[in-house]
Structures are given as structure tokens and as C-alpha cells.
């Protein structure tokens, strides 16, 4: 028989192929550019109107306000990007190419996650010119900017992984984006619910808010291990849950 001698398939090499294909696809369709343009536009507007404002402010305060607003822009971009992660291909049927190839759920999830994360990191880092203006014209430390941007990347990874989990469960991209927005919005609202909750539950409830609660240290230029652990744990759990959903889909 002339058919194949079975090929040796390295799952991580296949994972790299998934990553590269996905990353390229963001730049072949308008969606990647659109998300990038809107994110930069919002960053610029918020920098000018909210962070600089009309009164006189210390450059550290301007940077803190800018970073806080930019973290929400990254969060929103992650929510929008997450709809493409799994739900879109489920709707078109294209996911069957991956699911019938010799790679496991982990490689599919990680390849797609890192492609979206790379795009989001590029979008986030391309706004660095704004804090650079404060750095040049005011008095802020490089470490403050670095901590703020590290925090934004952590926000990006954690929200993307939550979005990926929701996307794995959703039949349509539109449903995925709405459900992710509702979930992430509810998590942020927990900060305010925590403030009016009595007792020991208050800090737990408030602790569910990614930006409102856990980005505070990063905006101040601090590296809090608790906050770092929160974002990394959320990322890990989101990815793990996504893999489980994909594996479970074979059993349904």
C-alpha cells in the first residue's frame, strides 16, 4: 500500500503551527487591526481627557490614572478577542481540522491562547509612547511604568483564559463575547459588592475583581505577590477548564 508510513508527530511542533496560523490570521482579517486601532484610540483619549485632565497633577498621579484606565481597555480588548478563540471555529466547522489532527486539547488551547495573548501584548506595548511622554516631561521611574505594563499583561492573560473557557462552552462567537463580558463585568462589580459586605466575606468578594482589586498595586508601581498569584492562578484555571471542556465535548 502506498499510503503513509506513519509520521512522527511532535505535539508541541503542531502547537507552534496552531500558534503561528492564529497569529497570522489576526493580521489577515480586519478584526486584529480594528481591535488594535480602537484600543489605541481609547488609550489616547483617556490619557488626554482623564489622566492629564484640566488641573495640575503630579506626573506620578497622571501615570497611575493612565495605567488604571489602560488596564480596563486591555480587559475589554481581551473580552472581544476571546470570542475568536474557539466559538468562531466551532460555528464555521474549521475546528475539525485541529480536532482530527494528532494533537491533544492542551496543544490546541495553548496554541490559540498564546496567539491571542501575543496580539494583545503587542497592542498593549504599542501604547508605551503615552507613559514615555510622562517619563520625558515629568518625574516617574522606569520601574513604575514596567510594573504597570506587567500588570496589564497579567490582566490580558487572565481575562483571555476566562474568555477562552466561555468561548469553549459557547455555540456562537456573539454568545461568547456577551457571556464573557457579563462574567468579567460581574467579577469587577464584586469589588463594590465587597465594600458593602460585612465581615470576612468582604475581602473574598472584593478579591474577585481583577482590575479594581488586583491591579491597584501594579498601578502604583508595586509588585504584590498576592496579586501576581491571583492573575497567574486565574490564567491557569481558565486554560485548564478550557481543556476539560474540549475533552468533555468528545464524550457528549
Amino acid at each position: 500500500m502506498s499510503a503513509a508510513t506513519a509520521l512522527h508527530v511532535s505535539p508541541w511542533r503542531s502547537c507552534l503551527q496552531v500558534y503561528l496560523r492564529d497569529l497570522k490570521s489576526y493580521f489577515r482579517t480586519p478584526s486584529g487591526y480594528l481591535i488594535w486601532a480602537v484600543s489605541l484610540l481609547l488609550d489616547g483619549l483617556l490619557f488626554n481627557s482623564v489622566a492629564i485632565g484640566e488641573g495640575r497633577r503630579l506626573s506620578t498621579d497622571v501615570l497611575q490614572i493612565y495605567l488604571f484606565n489602560a488596564a480596563f481597555v486591555v480587559e475589554a480588548a481581551a473580552v472581544v478577542l476571546s470570542m475568536r478563540l474557539l466559538a468562531e471555529e466551532r460555528a464555521t466547522g474549521a475546528q475539525l481540522l485541529l480536532f482530527t489532527s494528532p494533537l491533544g486539547e492542551a496543544q490546541i488551547v495553548l496554541g490559540r491562547f498564546f496567539a491571542a495573548f501575543s496580539l494583545l501584548a503587542l497592542i498593549t506595548l504599542s501604547s508605551l509612547y503615552l507613559p514615555a511622554l510622562i517619563f520625558v516631561h515629568g518625574k516617574v521611574s522606569f520601574g513604575h511604568i514596567a510594573a504597570g505594563y506587567l500588570g496589564m499583561l497579567l490582566v490580558a492573560s487572565s481575562i483571555l483564559s476566562v474568555g477562552m473557557f466561555v468561548s469553549a462552552l459557547s455555540p456562537r462567537p456573539f454568545v461568547a463575547v456577551l457571556a464573557t463580558a457579563a462574567l468579567v463585568g460581574s467579577m469587577e462589580l464584586c469589588y463594590f459588592v465587597g465594600r458593602i459586605t460585612d465581615g470576612s466575606a468582604a475581602s473574598f468578594v472584593a478579591g474577585l475583581a481583577p482590575v479594581w482589586q488586583h491591579y491597584q498595586s501594579f498601578r502604583r508601581g508595586l509588585l504584590d505577590l498576592g496579586d501576581l498569584a491571583f492573575f497567574l492562578t486565574l490564567t491557569y484555571l481558565g486554560l485548564l477548564a478550557s481543556m476539560r471542556v474540549l475533552a468533555g465535548a468528545r464524550r457528549r
Partner: peptide
Amino acid sequence: AELGYLPDTPPLYDEMSVGEYLRFAGKLRG
């Protein structure tokens, strides 16, 4: 790794060219 599968709706990526898509499918299979 031993199978080739065509579902009832072909699993295609519309933004890719035919050659590019086939190279991607081949690389996925090692």
C-alpha cells in the same frame, strides 16, 4: 495520525490560500 477525515462541511480557513492551508494541514500532521 493514521487518518484523513473529511467532515460533511470541509474544515477550511477562508483567509488562507489553498496551498498555504494544505501546508498548514501537513505540518499539523508532522
